[in-house]
Simulated assay, not measured.
Amino acid sequence: MNKNFTPVSLDGSRDFYDLWQRTPRRSLDYTLPNLWGWQEYYGLEWRFDGSLCWIRQTLPRPVCWAPVGDWNAVDWNHALWDSCTEAALDFIRVPEELLHIWQQALPGRVDAGEDRGQWEYLYAREDLARLPGNRFHKKKNHCNSYVKAYGEPDYRSLDDAMVEDVLAVQDDWCQWHECENSPSLRAENEAINRVLSHWDRFSGLDGGSLYVDGQM
């Protein structure tokens, strides 16, 4: 077993995506664009032991993230205690499904706390396509206002030619919000630029934008 952590890098993307496909509950935090985009800010490291990818955050303090892989094919009595011992057994961003697996495998040995700030917003794709009922009334009004002001949307999928436009809009947004005076916004801007500058290196990363009179 390799116990050496190395910085998250695109060179390990094939091994990571193989384990990612086996992960029972996949969340945005653990996508490769997110891990690699925030690698420098959080000092993110990983190591592969064949069945799991262990992830460790070194900044501002050492802490472990949940592993990526097939959680149901692991002997947690041994794996968990050997995973991030250099950083102490303090895990964050653990999906609820994995927490339940740990609690069943290690009764009385896993303490848990809830961080609602890490919850994700999830919508049904069909709902966002149709915007039915009162729940989506405000969103429907926004769409109608857009069409009234600009006509039918000119939507374009992300490609190499569009990246320069995206980065330019992001730069304008950042100047408007004075990112240089906000450590969190500055870090987010750096992560966005880092990922978009290599966007075609990520499997399944997609996006798009609206254009009005040829301008994003």
Rank of each mutant, 00 (worst) to 15 (best):
A161I: 08
A124Y: 07
N141G: 03
E164R: 11
G69Q: 03
P7H: 12
N141A: 13
I192Q: 12
P107N: 01
S209D: 01
E120G: 00
D11Y: 08
D49H: 07
S9I: 08
Q39G: 03
K139I: 08
A88G: 14
L52M: 14
L185G: 12
Y123A: 15
W36A: 02
N34Q: 01
L44H: 12
N189I: 00
I92D: 09
M216A: 15
T6W: 02
L131K: 02
C53A: 13
G12F: 09
D159M: 03
R14I: 14
T23Y: 01
D159T: 09
R125K: 07
D171E: 15
V169W: 09
Q103E: 11
F48M: 14
L80S: 11
E178P: 00
R135W: 11
T58G: 08
M1H: 07
W54M: 01
H177V: 05
V212L: 00
G207N: 12
E164K: 12
N189A: 06
E86S: 13
H78D: 14
C84M: 01
F16A: 10
V68E: 11
P183R: 04
E114D: 11
C174N: 03
L98F: 03
A124D: 10
W199V: 00
R201D: 15
D29T: 03
G12P: 03
P107M: 08
A129Q: 15
H78N: 14
D82C: 03
S197Q: 14
V195K: 09
T31F: 01
D127C: 10
R125A: 10
V212R: 04
W199T: 07
G69R: 05
W199I: 08
L32I: 05
D29M: 05
N141C: 01
K138G: 13
P67T: 09
Y146C: 08
C53I: 02
R109W: 00
E120H: 10
G214Q: 13
W54T: 05
D70A: 13
S13V: 12
A168W: 03
D111L: 12
V163Q: 03
A168Q: 08
D159G: 12
